[in-house]
């Protein structure tokens, strides 16, 4: 953290974003762009978006981008990567997209050891459609479709990293958070390692980011960060679940 000052990464286009005040999608976008610029990969990247509040990622990033259907991004990324094996190919998916409708595509992408990266934004609910319960919703958490708080009969939180870490094809799997500057730095390091894993041809990588959705949580941006730290982290412990040899 010796480096002083800050400049917008050139790989992020300068335009107004649709994200709500304090939405952590913006931080995630910025970190991805920073890492791509630092690795000098802007011209070698194909970003695969998803359907959710990250749906406009291809309009915000200044590199080639694809907007697939809800949940299918890992399959689309597989198609891209098989044709362009030397490109950096990553998906950017929310928890509804990845851990509900797209579970099959995500799991089998990891199981095949597809040499792509998934950036997974876990904000515990369906943000874009107005805050409905997702498989990642915390126990007791109130959403528009768990109005009394998520109870046992509505299932239990889905820990994707822990599951994917059991897949032999998964090379790098990490869960990070964005609730303070130290966590943001750690998150950036994880993205870097995931991309390095991919560029070294080591296999599938995923970075899950615990991410605040102040709007649907009904919290101020600051309270929402506290909610991530105090409520989300106990259910979704942070850390690197798998790190390949050769990516230190």
């Amino acid at each position: 953290m010796a480096k002083k000052g800050y400049m917008r990464p050139p790989t992020l286009l300068q335009k107004p974003w649709h994200f709500c005040p304090g939405c952590n999608h913006g931080i995630a976008h910025r970190l991805v762009a920073e890492v791509i610029d630092e690795m000098g990969l802007q011209n070698q990247t194909v970003g695969v978006g998803s359907v959710g509040c990250g749906v406009f990622s291809y309009e915000y990033f200044n590199f080639d981008g694809i907007g697939p259907s809800h949940g299918r991004s890992p399959a689309v990324a597989t198609g891209v990567k098989r044709v362009l094996p030397d490109r950096l190919v990553f998906t950017y998916q929310g928890d509804g997209d990845l851990a509900a409708i797209g579970t099959t595509e995500m799991v089998h992408c990891a199981v095949r050891g597809e040499n792509i990266t998934i950036i997974f934004i876990n904000n515990t609910l369906y943000g874009m459609t107005g805050g409905q319960m997702a498989p990642t919703t915390l126990m007791g958490q109130v959403t528009t479709t768990s109005p009394r708080g998520r109870g046992r009969e509505q299932g239990l939180p889905f820990r994707v990293c822990e599951m994917l870490a059991t897949a032999e094809g998964a090379a790098y799997v990490a869960r990070v958070a964005l609730f303070n500057p130290a966590q943001v730095n750690r998150a950036k390091k994880a993205i870097r390692r995931a991309f390095e894993t991919q560029m070294a041809g080591l296999g599938f990588s995923m970075v899950e980011m615990l991410s605040a959705c102040p709007t649907n949580w009904g919290l101020s941006p600051l309270e929402a960060l506290k909610y991530v730290e105090e409520k989300m982290v106990p259910t979704y412990p942070l850390g690197e679940f798998k790190v390949p040899e050769g990516v230190k």
Binding site: Y6, N24, I27, H29, N185
Partner: peptide, 16 residues
């Protein structure tokens, strides 16, 4: 110049 503000800004408003 610590840039903590820019690190946390979700809308990439800040340059230092």
């Amino acid at each position: 110049g610590c840039a903590l503000c820019a690190r946390m800004c979700p809308h990439v408003v800040i340059e230092i």
